[in-house]
Structures are given as structure tokens and as C-alpha cells.
Design a protein around this nucleic acid. Sequence first.
DNA 1: TGATGTGTTGAG
DNA 2: TCAACACATCAG
Length: 280
Amino acid sequence: MFLVSSVIPMDVAKSETLNTIDSLLPPKKRMRLTEPPTDNAPVSAAIKKVSFPNNTKYKGVVQHQNGHWGAQIYVDHKRIWLGTFRSAAEAAMGYDSASIKLRSFDANSHRNFPWSDLTVHEPVFQKRYTTEAVLNMIKDGSYQREFKEFLKNRSQKELTASDVGKLNRLVIPKKYAVKYLPFLSDDQTEREEGEIVEDVEVVFYDREMKQWKFRWSEQELLMVDVHRFSDNDSAVTDEEVNKTVHNSCDDVMKPAENFNSKLGEEENRGGFMLFGVRIQ
DNA sequence: TGATGTGTTGAG
DNA sequence: TCAACACATCAG
């Protein structure tokens, strides 16, 4: 069984170690409306396990003399105040959320925390609101509550073995990958025509923080190659992948037909949840 | 008076 | 762009 529940940029995944940051957080007299993430919305779980070199620093987070934490973000040479928070981590989360709206998926390079199975849905959530509305929610502390509600109303989709085929490969049409996984495809829009692009390795983490390696390849499709489904399974070789891709694009598509039809259904309902799906 | 937001400045 | 510091303003 394979539960894909979070995505973490490769460079972050490699460089960061598991740790906790809660002990660094000071108490706060004036509590915000913001609820700490719970087990049902384990944002903190994903965050807790990530530490940074010099892990007392967060981008966009400032500390007042009284020990309270503020968040700010700079856009177009202007500072936007994101409010005060009861902890540096919450301030950092506020910064990340604002960064998504203000910088789109360039936020990949402007984040405190890697994408988790929950935060990866923030761009879709934020599309419902104007920039001003998102910033206001961050400021007044209602953002996490609204986002949590948004996630609750989403349906999760379960993948089956037929979705991945014999090679354990999940193939996603480029149009869906570009639409729903823009942080993986953004760079391609800036490529020059004819430029050869190497495959990009992407690491997903399941709820047990187990690592799963995928590979984005730009053939006729943007696709994900599942290199292993369990520690005992042998990895799909590049030779097998290339043979299948080049010999018959239709064959590649076949295992993904069910998945793609589900994609369409989800799209019609106004959203798509890839992460949190199960392959068994 | 403490909490919060803004102005300003210097570093990268 | 970012953080740090100083200062202004707000609210209980």
C-alpha cells in the first residue's frame, strides 16, 4: 500500500533533518484566533519534523522586544505586514501562505517549510480569494481555520493498481500536471524552444515520512515514475521506462485511463487532490 | 503601558 | 529582498 500524502522539494528533503521546533517557541499573552494544527490537520506534524540549519531563523519573521513574533513579506519593494503570531513557527507559516498568493509558485524558493500534504493544497484554496482577502485572513488569524474547512470539504480519491500498471508507473497527462502541479512545471514555461531538459527527481513523503522517489520526465507527457513501492520491490529500470515510452505512447496511457477519468471528475467538482491518495 | 504596526537603514 | 532596530500608534 502506498499513501502519497506530502511533497517536499528534493533539495529540501535532502538537506533537512527531522527535529522539533516547538521548544523554541515562546508563550504569548494575547492569543490569536489561529488554532494550532491538530492531528486532523497535521500541519504542525509536518513542520515539527523539519529543522533548518540555524533553526531559530524563519524567513519573514521578526521578533519584537517583548518577545512576540511578527511576520512580514516584501513585494514590489514594499513591505506587507502579516500580523503578529504566538510563535515563530506560526509567523513563518503565515509568511509561507502569503508567499503562495503573492509570488505564486515562485514561493518554492521563498518558503520556510517544505510543501506538506496539506499545504500543497493552499494554492487551490487561495484561488477562491483575492490577494487582499488572503492577507486579511492571515492577519486576523482566520486563514488556518478557513483552510482547514476547505480541506474538510474536499474528497480524497483512491488510486488502485490499475492506475499504475505493471511497471508501477503513474502517468499524468501534461495538461493536468501543469494545472495541478505547477511547482514542478513552472520552470518549463521559461525554457527556450528546443532546450534539452534533464529529468527531475521528486521526493514524496507519506504520512510516516517514508520517502518515495518519483521522476518527472518531459516526453509526450509529464509523468511520474514510481521507482519503488516497497523496500522489497525492485526499482523500475530506465530501460523499461524508455522502452515503454518510446514504443507505444498508448500503452503508457492505458494504465492511467481510470486515473485520468477520475481527474476529470475531480476537475468538474472544482478541484483535484493527488496527494493523500492511496495506491495498493 | 504593553502590544502592534511602520519607518528607516544596512546587509546580502 | 530581508532583518533589525527605533519609533509611532493603538487599545485595554
